[in-house]
Amino acid sequence: MKNNATKVVDVLKDAYRTKEAVPASDLWETRVMGDIRTLSVPVVQPGFPALFGRFVWHFAPIACFLIVVLWVALVNLDYAPEYEIAATFMANPIEGTLEQFWGV
């Protein structure tokens, strides 16, 4: 046996489901299209991967050029960082302390 509130709810559900739709008039349609025409065209925004792919290649020639320039500069300067670091350690007055610290 249904309780009273459930009975009423069932009827209300029926009432809700049988609501008639308001018909769209031609005037309404004209008004909507009038508004649409005044709006700007929807612009498709590309996603992040597309944007990344598009912009990253602009920097590729510059990156290649920089790599070549730096490589040439390093060769010409005859710069060898490992020797410089070793020389710094050899000449360092705190050499003994570092040796003790590292347990050498």
Binding site: A21, S25, L39
Partner: peptide, 28 residues
């Protein structure tokens, strides 16, 4: 119109449905 008629009072259906299409256009 069917969806909107169920959710809003009858005198606001046209206006709300109008907004639905404008929003849809802007979100295409």
């Amino acid at each position: 119109m069917g969806i909107v008629s169920r959710h809003v009072p009858y005198d606001h259906v046209e206006e709300t449905a109008h907004n639905v299409f404008v929003r849809a256009y802007q979100s295409l």
